[in-house]
Design a protein around this nucleic acid. Structure first.
Lengths: 109, 109
DNA sequence: TTTATATATTGCAATATTACGATATATTAT
DNA sequence: ATAATATATCGTAATATTGCAATATATAAA
């Protein structure tokens, strides 16, 4: 006892958690994958592809956008969404640093 | 019109989303990082480290365990939790496949 | 200007998550 | 057997997420 629990979370922990949370839904995983398989990444194509109503897709896109994972630009009356690769690269770095800290000989299970 | 939205989610999309969701909370990020920085990965040490009550930590550990990210073994009256590196490696593979599908020349924004 | 198309926002119901006090369980120490 | 320690579970309140119908906005087409 006597140990004070003063530690809160670091900015990096919070930002990483926000990004992973944004990707932590099958519809949003599917959206990201769909965007990458299309040359034209138009919002309406996602609505036609996924089994969700248009407002729900719009909501998921907003969450991905808020987390910085995608960005959108207006293309006439449509909106084109694209991946931000830097965020994905940051996540890969995060997991790789986890793996580099992993020492099997220290594991008790 | 005429396009039926028959597609649901694949098993991989669902599993990946579950794992990312499990990591999508700063406390669970902190837990994973803490486990990797300790040789002895004892649950009670996490309780002393993080600014959360013991039942809350227990609940977060359960979610990480359900997602397969950690596993625990009984060590006397304590429980030792460890990372499952395969799950992290799977996530790195997932993000790398996203990056390999990313073609800047196809992006509209 | 009217109509059609594409997307966003609002409002709302159902469900899930988060956090914790109280309590249960299980092991160890006395 | 009793007490102490470590962890899990239960119950519950507060909040967040998910999904959608209805509606608003904005651009393009007629």
């Amino acid at each position: 006892m006597g140990v004070s629990k003063t530690s809160s979370y670091t900015e990096i922990q919070i930002e990483t958690a926000n990004r992973l949370k944004a990707l932590g839904h099958p519809a949003r995983i599917a959206i990201v994958q769909f965007l990458l398989n299309q040359k034209e990444c138009i919002c309406n194509d996602i609505v036609n592809e996924l089994p969700l109503a248009q407002p729900t897709i719009s909501q998921h896109l907003k969450e991905l956008k808020n987390a910085g994972i995608i960005q959108g630009t207006i293309e006439g009356k449509a909106i084109c969404y694209c991946i931000n690769p830097k965020v994905i690269k940051d996540l890969v770095s995060f997991f790789n640093s986890i793996l580099s800290n992993f020492h099997p000989e220290d594991q008790c299970c």
